[in-house]
């Protein structure tokens, strides 16, 4: 497809052609045909530049609604010549474009492509657009890659960052292992885990209290409940709050349980547990509470 510049170029060539006809000037004829000839060849170059590239695979991290992530895309140049200035973007993500200046002939490159999933739940991965205006910017060739797989988008993460104070189980059977390192204090930490001595040594006056990290399951197990999000607002906002807490708890290595609309999990950690909880949140409907 011609770019805007391409359309202007076309209009200019047409006017020059009229001028050549009007003045019966063979030099202008030749000149206009040279412009048209180069533009036509550039059309072929633009097309080939894109046509020889193929997307081999896409790798996605965890997807949260409305949160920009970077998908890793494996792109291969199958042709005998190098491809230049390839732009990659998911359809509908025109503002988030990844550029590859050069993909050598017969080589594969990994390209980070920004992607912002629109809504929670099962979604189709949008078409991936591979395009380039190379060489002269007169035309833009593009091709689309369709992905058949469905992607699960977790609820948007937003809300209060700190865990709810009632989430700590204060398990009396809490165990202490060997000291590993320090980490900043969280509201869910038991005060007896605070290392007062280490906290006072810091030179930074704004330094937070430090809590000892121990080997083994020294952290308190967290319990997330729908009711804890009562102040968060509407249905989607409450899901977002839970999504934020769970993802944070998972990142920090806490054990946690979730209790929402008749869905209960035991306190656990790890990716399987995380996926189970988040999948439930992702697919939750308001009717499920009735």
């Amino acid at each position: 497809m011609p770019t805007r510049f391409g359309y202007v170029f076309g209009a200019m060539s047409f006017i020059l052609l009229l001028m050549a006809i009007g003045y019966s000037n063979n030099v202008i004829y030749f000149y206009v045909f040279a412009l048209i000839g180069v533009a036509m060849v550039s059309m072929f170059v633009t097309n080939q530049n894109v046509a020889r590239c193929e997307i081999k695979a896409v790798q996605l991290p965890k997807l949260y609604a409305n949160e920009l992530i970077t998908a890793s895309l494996s792109i291969k140049n199958l042709g005998q010549s190098d491809s230049h200035f390839i732009e990659l973007s998911f359809r509908g993500e025109k503002k988030e474009v990844s550029n590859l200046n050069k993909i050598k002939a017969k080589t594969e490159r990994i390209a980070p492509v920004p992607f912002r999933p629109p809504q929670r739940g099962w979604n189709s991965l949008p078409k991936l657009e591979l395009s380039s205006p190379f060489p002269f910017g007169l035309l833009r060739a593009w091709k689309l890659k369709l992905f058949n797989e469905e992607i699960l988008v977790y609820p948007e993460r937003k809300g209060v960052l700190e865990f709810p104070s009632a989430s700590s189980l204060n398990d009396p059977t809490e165990k202490f292992g060997l000291f590993r390192d320090h980490r900043p204090y969280q509201s869910t930490d038991s005060p007896k885990h605070i290392d007062w001595k280490a906290s006072s040594k810091g030179t930074d006056p704004y330094q937070k209290l430090l809590v000892k990290n121990f080997e083994g399951s020294e952290k308190p197990a967290l319990m997330f409940d729908w009711e804890q999000t009562r102040d968060s607002g509407k249905f989607e906002d409450r899901l977002s709050q839970l999504s934020l807490w769970i993802s944070k708890a998972d990142e920090m290595g806490y054990e946690y349980s979730l209790s929402v609309a008749g869905f209960h999990t035991d306190s656990s950690s790890g990716s399987k547990h995380f996926e189970k909880c988040m999948k439930h949140l992702s697919l939750l409907r308001e009717e499920d509470f009735i």
């Binding site: 040279a34 180069v38 036509m40």
Partner: peptide, 20 residues
């Protein structure tokens, strides 16, 4: 590009009808 365009240019130049 210019080399590849040259036959197109020549063809257009010699074949394109010269309107009066």
């Amino acid at each position: 590009v210019f080399l590849a365009a040259s036959p197109i240019v020549m063809a257009l130049f010699f074949i394109f009808p010269r309107f009066v």
